[in-house]
Design a protein around this nucleic acid. Structure first.
Length: 260
DNA sequence: AAGCTCACCAACCGCAATATA
DNA sequence: GTATATTGCGGTTGGTGAGCT
C-alpha cells in the first residue's frame, strides 16, 4: 500500500485544497525537480509550478528535513552528540542554531534526538537531584541541630554556674533565629558538609545550592534555571557525574553556565 | 500469539520575523 | 508607512516498529 493511499485511509488526504500527511515518492520526485529548476525558496509557487497539491510550508519542510542532497543520513555520532550537548547547554532549545553547527543535520532531527535521548533524563535528573538536595538539606539540618545542641549544652553548663536566667533566655532566642540550615558560602563549605563527594561533585552542588554562577544578581535561585536546559544531563549527581562529564566532554563550567 | 509500552521520527501547527507590493 | 505574503522556528502530534510481558 502506498503512503498516499494509506494516508487517505488514515484520514489525511486533501484538506482545504492541500494534500496532507506522508509524502509519496512521486511527490518527492516533483519537489526535487522543482528545486533543481527553480532553486530553493518561493515555496508557495511549488504547487502551481510543480503540480503538487502541497502548500509551501509543507514543501519547504519536506525539502529541508528530507530531500536536501547534503543531508547526512544515519545515527548521530558520539562526537555530534557531544556537540549537541555542549550547544544545548549554551543556547537551550535553539535547534536551528545548533543545527548550523552540525552540517547535514536538521533542526528537526536534533530536536527529535534530544527529546528522545535526553529529555527524559532531564526529568529524572531533576527528580534525583531534588531528592539529593533534600537529603543534603536534611543532613545539614541534623548537623546544625547537633551543633546547636552541643553549644547549648556547653552554654547551659556555663550558665548553670552563673545561674543567670536572662542570659539563658536570650541565648535560646538567638538560637531560634538560626534554625534554618545555612547555604554553603564557598566550595570549602560544601566540602565540609559533603566530604564524601569529589571536588567536581562539591563544585556542582555548591552551584546547585547557590544558583548558577551566572544567574543574574537579584534573579535568585530558581529550579527552572538549573534544570531547564543547562544541567539536565547529569544523570545522577552522586553516581554518574564524573562519567557524564567525561563521556559527554561537556565541562562543568559550561554545564553550570545557563543560557547566554 | 496477542496486547502493551516505548523509542523514533515525519509531519503538522501556531507564531514571529522578514520580505515584498 | 502599511498590509500582505513568505519564510523560519520551536513545540506538538501521531504512526510505526521493536521489544517486552
Amino acid at each position: 500500500m502506498s503512503w498516499g493511499v494509506m494516508g487517505e485511509q488514515l484520514g489525511w488526504g486533501i484538506i482545504e485544497g492541500w494534500r496532507k500527511g506522508p509524502w509519496t515518492t512521486e511527490e518527492d520526485r516533483l519537489l526535487v525537480e522543482y528545486v533543481k529548476l527553480h532553486g530553493e525558496g518561493r515555496w508557495n509557487s511549488v504547487a502551481r509550478l510543480a503540480g503538487l497539491k502541497r502548500n509551501g510550508k509543507s514543501c519547504r519542510l519536506r525539502w529541508v528535513n528530507y530531500l536536501r542532497p547534503d543531508l547526512k543520513r544515519g545515527q548521530i555520532t558520539p562526537h555530534e552528540e557531544s556537540i549537541i550537548l555542549e550547544l544545548h547547554a549554551r543556547w537551550g532549545n535553539r535547534w536551528s542554531k545548533i543545527a548550523r553547527s552540525l552540517p547535514g543535520r536538521t533542526d528537526n532531527e536534533i530536536k527529535n534526538y534530544w527529546r528522545t535521548h535526553f529529555k527524559k533524563k532531564a526529568i529524572v535528573s531533576s527528580d534525583k537531584a531534588g531528592k539529593l538536595r533534600s537529603r543534603l538539606l536534611a543532613r545539614q539540618q541534623i548537623q546544625f541541630q547537633q551543633q546547636q545542641q552541643q553549644q547549648q549544652q556547653q552554654q547551659l553548663q556555663q550558665l548553670q554556674n552563673q545561674v543567670d536566667m536572662k542570659k539563658i533566655m536570650s541565648s535560646l532566642d538567638e538560637s531560634d533565629n538560626r534554625v534554618a540550615p545555612f547555604l554553603p558560602q564557598s566550595r570549602q563549605d560544601m566540602a565540609t558538609v559533603y566530604p564524601a563527594g569529589t571536588a567536581e561533585e562539591q563544585g556542582f552542588l555548591y552551584s546547585m545550592f547557590n544558583g548558577c554562577a551566572s544567574v543574574a544578581p537579584g534573579e535568585g535561585f530558581n529550579e527552572d534555571t538549573l534544570w531547564d536546559g543547562s544541567l539536565w544531563n547529569l544523570d545522577d549527581v552522586h553516581g554518574n557525574l564524573s562519567m557524564a562529564c567525561a563521556t559527554s566532554k561537556v565541562s562543568m563550567h559550561s554545564l553550570a553556565t545557563p543560557l547566554y
